[in-house]
Simulated scan of single mutants.
Amino acid sequence: MLSNTLGKKDPIPCVLTVAMKPARRPLLGALALAALLSFILLIPPPSGLLLFPSHRQTPTSPYAHRPKLLFLLAGQSNMAGRGAPPAPLPPPYLPHPRLLRLAADRRWVAATPPLHADIDTHKTCGLGPAMPFAHRVLLSSSPESAPSSVSEPGEGDPVVLGLVPCAVGGTRIWMWARGQPLYEAAVARTRAAVADGGGELGAVLWFQGESDTIEVDDARSYGGKMERLVADFRADLGLPNLPVIQVGLASGEGNYTEIVREAQKNVNLHNVIYVDAMGLPLSDDQLHLSTEAQLQLGEMLAQAYLEFNSSRDPKL
């Protein structure tokens, strides 16, 4: 049984810089940074070698090779998490023995915030929506939960959740297109997660678009790129009905936030679920969600997933 307290962590190393203001960076520079990112995320390190010193002491979980209900976490900084961690941490951010995350070196380890510390390395990560989401889903799978609770991967076994962090702050949606390093890394990490112990991919949690509000052409083309991204994920992961839960923007870096939000609302694909973050509290920078907001968003995402899961045809 894991402890309900978090140990002190070494400072997160800044080993990579991704363009936080992509509209002001040359295209070639963004492509070079994306290529560096692909090396870090897509290629697993040699056995026994960890890329990020802050996670060297994180033990492999005893549930590592059990079947899991998996969730791919993708997008930019509000998915990676910038919420300031209070002391003590709220219960939805504490470890749970059956809640795991896929580390950058593709080991299954205990899920403890910040979940993206060894993925989104250009900034110090904080609290995001995935931990409260996962705690709520785990609660729904307990014996005393309602009959509409999520199905368990192994017959008679308690459900084990596996989170697959892939979000990187400051990224535009074109950087998530098929063939781009971020997309290829997400697909490769998800395949590795399924291969190590089996199980199934429950959904993609997608929170991105703030960087696409800077240029009007990016904002206007967002909907088509999002639909292509969903179709590519489903094709490359072999899951034509894969649920994708996208978060409607609560803020933006530019003046075209409403255009992106309308595109998100109007994605015309089955099993794409819209969860609106507008109105949730923002931090002082008026761009990132506060810790309180991330807690609320995690609950909203879980509710959307559980309602969808209880209503869909089990044959699909």
Rank of each mutant, 00 (worst) to 15 (best):
D105V: 03
P97M: 06
R98E: 07
A84I: 14
V272A: 15
A146S: 13
P153Y: 04
H122S: 09
L237E: 11
S148Q: 15
G7T: 11
I259P: 01
L2P: 09
E299P: 00
V15P: 00
G169T: 02
T58A: 14
S38Q: 11
G248P: 06
P90M: 11
V194P: 01
L269D: 10
H270V: 08
E200D: 13
I259R: 04
L139V: 05
E155H: 14
L289F: 05
L51P: 00
R189D: 06
L94N: 09
L249Y: 03
Y93L: 12
R312I: 11
Y274I: 02
P129V: 02
N271I: 00
P129G: 03
M226R: 03
H122A: 03
V230E: 01
M278P: 00
T58C: 11
P165R: 02
S47T: 13
H116G: 04
V150A: 14
D236Y: 08
L127D: 05
M20V: 07
E184D: 14
V159P: 11
L36C: 10
P92S: 05
P45A: 07
L239A: 12
I259Q: 02
L36E: 11
V160H: 03
Q294D: 10
S54C: 14
A304S: 10
R189L: 07
S77A: 15
T124L: 11
S140F: 02
K9E: 15
R98L: 13
E155S: 12
W206H: 13
P281S: 06
A195S: 12
L282M: 08
A30F: 00
L161K: 05
Q208I: 06
L102G: 05
R191I: 01
A35W: 12
L237Y: 10
